[in-house]
Nucleic acid binder design. Structure first.
Lengths: 147, 147
DNA sequence: TGACGATAGATGTAAATGCATCTAATATCG
DNA sequence: CGATATTAGATGCATTTACATCTATCGTCA
């Protein structure tokens, strides 16, 4: 009859708060490193990275949306900013008049690489240094259960 | 001589992206549940919870800041909103003219409890259901290394 | 075909956030 | 003591985000 859901255990609750806090702390550290290197925010990297790893350096907005988990309206405006900086450009999508391509420019590729140099070091410093290989795998394995 | 930091391993990088994505997804689900129940955002809960668990139901802003990882200027304005809703009130801190107390009101206590009913169920549904007890402990243990 | 609902993406407006800076009070140290 | 530095917290302003809605196009089905 009743939609009974038992309350979360102590361990589950503290797993959740650990996820929130770890992410908060780590993101702040990494963003700080990027900023210290005069780089744009991490969200820019995420989009550029999805484009870089795609087949032709171009994706539809909705594809980027799926891969980055950005909200549609946020992505739309993020693309505006990237475009304004010359890192991507929008092109028509012939097969569907509603669609667009987001195409990475050379400047976009270059910036992504420069960002990765900083970002990679930052990941290693803040995360890699504190985890054994198998621990990192454990984290990824368990957390991917939520995707 | 050189500040050599080796690049992060595949496993470390994917641990990081897993943290980001899991948090993103879970937070979105939980916030959606709260909103569906006409409740304020999770950040309100975090502050109210810190107040509720404190000795006298009151804390200094900087204490809340430390415990929630909110930025000082964000917290200051969040307290504005809470105060406007009658959930907390600011009081003078006698021992230091610069300081303030943030005092939880009865309405604040009540709301926190109502929020917890929703929040707890949400945690259990989205997280608890997908983790064994020892897995939850593993996550918390590993992620707390970053705090 | 043509009406209708669904989908891709953009956008106006309000709210929240980030950044820099400000005020007021306290601590430090010559 | 008095000048200076530091700390707690607030705030003006620009940027970003959330929410709702809009436009344009497409797919479906009578």
């Amino acid at each position: 009859m009743s939609e009974k859901t038992s309350n979360p255990s102590e361990a589950v609750t503290s797993a959740w708060t650990s996820i929130m806090r770890a992410r908060e702390r780590l993101l702040a550290s990494i963003e700080a490193d990027l900023k210290a290197a005069s780089m744009p925010p991490l969200a820019w990297y995420d989009v550029l990275w999805e484009l870089a790893r795609s087949q032709d350096g171009k994706l539809r907005p909705y594809e980027i949306e799926e891969r980055t988990l950005l909200a549609q309206y946020n992505l739309s405006r993020l693309i505006d900013r990237l475009e304004k900086e010359g890192l991507v450009r929008r092109e028509a999508f012939a097969e569907d008049g509603r669609g667009r391509w987001v195409v990475m420019t050379d400047a976009g590729r270059k910036l992504r690489e420069r960002m990765w140099a900083v970002y990679a070091k930052s990941i290693e410093t803040h995360i890699g240094c504190k985890l054994a290989e198998n621990e990192a795998k454990t984290i990824a394995g368990l957390l991917d259960r939520f995707l």
